[in-house]
Amino acid sequence: MEEAKLSRSAMIAIVLLRIVIGWHFLYEGIAKLTSPSWSAVGYMRASRGPFAALFKSIANNPQMLDNANLITMYGLTIVGVLLMLGLLTRLAAIGGIAFILLFYLCNPPFVGYFYTIPTEGTYLIVNKNLVELCALAVILLTRSGLVAGLDRIVHGLLAGRTRLAPLRV
């Protein structure tokens, strides 16, 4: 059976999706890096759900908290830049999914959980984190960096005169 082919306009939309998600990650990272006192401690101390104990133990361990803060600040920034440039796109998408999964699991909007931290919307299981995570899954699977992004050049260079190895889907 012939597989569905992505149209040119669909791929343009995916590239745009990748750029705006990258923008979001990049600014989240830079805003934290340039804030003199940003820390994930409050978010992690408010954690609930099946992984609450883990997040709270990180929040209460200065060394682990410091590592978590550094990884978050620099990680978001790097993922953001890579997504925007379309460089190592699949790796960046996996990194982005991992970050968002952690954010989601730290404070999941599950049935019966009541948060006092104000949010900009109302959610039941699905929140904007989860939506962004799914969008990153699309980016991961469609390899848009090979269409519009530095991956196209990198792959070309790595393959020498042969631009790309055949892609089997």
Binding site: L6, S7, A148, G149
Partner: peptide
Amino acid sequence: ADGASREPRKLDRRDVLKGL
């Protein structure tokens, strides 16, 4: 759209433009 090519080919000007 999926970015792959079956035939070995040079990295041409169009690839660079799309890459950037």
